[in-house]
Design a protein around this nucleic acid. Structure first.
Length: 258
DNA sequence: ATGGTTGTTGGACAA
């Protein structure tokens, strides 16, 4: 089973790019983030025509995630537990062929001095709690998405420039490690322990893409039962270089069939 | 470089 994650920065603006990539790459499951549309406005028919079942969780203007799958999805969860008053559409999770798969959009958290940063940290605590409860089930699960976390200095073109940013500051990285250290496997780094310049996001501004000034913030965290089946995890840079590109590019993880 | 770009939306805000 191949699972892709991609922050598309508006599914409507990106529709031709996304459909073309899916046609070529053909992942079985797709985790989308920043669909930037209400649930009912998600262009489900375009994806259904390609054989995907569509489960979108959106809101007006911002955020929004989706889980697409060529195999049936059961037991859908449409919000991250722990803060029922949180209205932001950032989480969808379902079971595909016995694998629990989430598409998540972790809050950006900038600017750090605002209420956005504590919200990010609370959201990470909720994700940790939820991962812990999933781990107790001893099942294969895959948490894919835009984590808005640069795990290490080598995942960033200029760590010094990012030292106080919400995506990289100490407290953020420590919280991310807390989650991983529950017993999860960060798939890309596990399979590419020495890779550098392996980025998943390049800002639209200041020629970041042509200059390769990127950061790696789109990740897959795997339970032990999923990690035992891990075959590959790769970043496909090609979509980032195309016309009308998202500022993120897709990451694909492959698991052996059960 | 107190800039630069893109998307939603129709003026800021978010990233």
């Amino acid at each position: 089973m191949r699972i892709a994650t991609w922050n598309v920065n508006s599914v409507k603006a990106r529709l031709p790019n996304v459909l073309a990539w899916l046609d070529k790459a053909g992942p079985d499951v797709v985790c989308l983030q920043e669909i930037k549309c209400e649930t009912g406005n998600f262009p489900a028919k375009d994806f259904e025509a390609m054989g995907y079942e569509v489960h979108a969780v959106g809101q007006k203007s911002y955020n929004g995630v989706a889980l697409l799958s060529k195999l049936p999805v059961t037991d859908l969860l449409t919000r991250l537990p722990g803060e029922p008053e949180d209205e932001q559409a950032r989480y969808v999770e379902g079971t595909v062929a016995g694998v629990r798969i989430a598409s998540l959009y972790l809050p950006n958290g900038n600017p750090v001095g605002s209420e956005k940063y504590p919200y990010k940290l609370r959201w990470m605590d909720r994700l940790k709690d939820h991962a812990q409860s999933l781990l107790k089930q001893e099942i294969p699960f895959v948490l894919g998405g835009d984590y808005n976390v640069i795990p290490e200095g080598r995942d960033c073109y200029d760590p010094a420039a990012w030292s106080e940013d919400a995506l990289f500051r100490r407290e953020t990285r420590a919280k991310f490690r807390e989650i991983v250290n529950l017993g999860l496997t960060e798939a890309f780094r596990a399979l590419h322990p020495t890779a550098e310049h392996a980025y998943s996001f390049w800002d639209y501004q200041a020629g970041a893409w042509p200059r390769d000034l990127g950061i790696r913030i789109d990740h897959f965290l795997l339970s032990p039962q999923a990690a035992d089946r891990l075959v590959a995890c790769d970043i496909d840079r090609e979509p980032r270089g195309q016309e009308k590109a998202s500022d993120h590019t897709p990451v694909v993880v492959e698991l052996t069939d059960a």
